[in-house]
């Protein structure tokens, strides 16, 4: 059976990786906007799409983080203490 501490660390690592992934997507989208501005290639459309897309990814990662932290805080020993 795996060590409790190791599982805790893996769980924290997984949250960090989720944030890394979604931040990476956001950086990629911002880079595409920069490119469209540089080339004067319909930057308004690009901005419009990214204004929708980026918050969606961050909402998802926020919900996941809220659940993971909430479940850990909601454990019996934490509630009782």
């Amino acid at each position: 059976m795996m060590n409790r501490k190791l599982i805790d660390r893996l769980q924290i690592l997984s949250i960090s990786l989720i944030w890394l992934l979604f931040t990476g997507i956001a950086v990629w989208i911002l880079n595409l906007i920069k490119e469209s501005l540089r080339l004067h290639d319909a930057p308004d459309a690009s901005l419009g799409i990214s204004l929708v897309a980026i918050p969606v990814f961050f909402t998802l990662s926020s919900v996941l983080t809220y659940v993971f932290i909430g479940l850990r805080k909601g454990r019996k020993k934490d509630v009782e203490s």
Binding site: Y66, V67, G70, L71, K73, G74, V79
Partner: peptide
């Protein structure tokens, strides 16, 4: 726990 159920429902 009740708190965990609340977190799950909200999410």
């Amino acid at each position: 726990t009740e708190q965990q159920h609340k977190v799950l429902d909200r999410a």
